[in-house]
């Protein structure tokens, strides 16, 4: 007989850690982008676009956005798990949230690299 642990201690630890890790990534990016905005002070289209045309900035912005979507997924998932008791509705909301966040990731690629 297979004994698989489904609940108990350490359950969800990975998500807990990811929520902190993604928060830290976002905080670092926020600091970086504030410094860049203060230095560049973009007012024209070319100046604004120039920031994100830089390959490193596009890459870092993508990392930030992925961290944001992941963070949002864990947070919104927790909200559904806390308040929605009906299994069917809960599953639907979880799937919709997951689909939307994955979709946003694709959208972010499109915005940053204009595929």
């Amino acid at each position: 007989m297979i004994k698989r642990k489904l609940v108990g201690a350490h359950y969800g630890f990975g998500d807990w850690l990811l929520q902190r890790g993604t928060a830290l990534v976002m905080a670092l990016y926020a600091t970086l982008i504030l410094v860049i905005m203060a230095i560049v002070q973009p007012s024209t289209y070319l100046e604004w676009r120039g920031i994100f045309d830089n390959r490193i900035m596009a890459f870092l912005t993508f990392i930030y956005l992925v961290a944001l979507f992941w963070h949002a997924w864990i947070g919104v998932r927790d909200i559904w798990l806390d308040y929605v008791k009906n299994t069917g509705v809960r599953l639907l909301l979880l799937l919709a949230t997951l689909a939307v966040t994955i979709g946003y990731t694709g959208w972010a690629v499109q915005i940053l690299w204009r595929v």
Binding site: A72, V76, Y104
Partner: peptide
Amino acid sequence: GAGLFLLLPVFLWLFERSL
């Protein structure tokens, strides 16, 4: 947090349009 999640598409759209 919930509010920011709901506003996400609006800001992605604005970010896209701005670039």
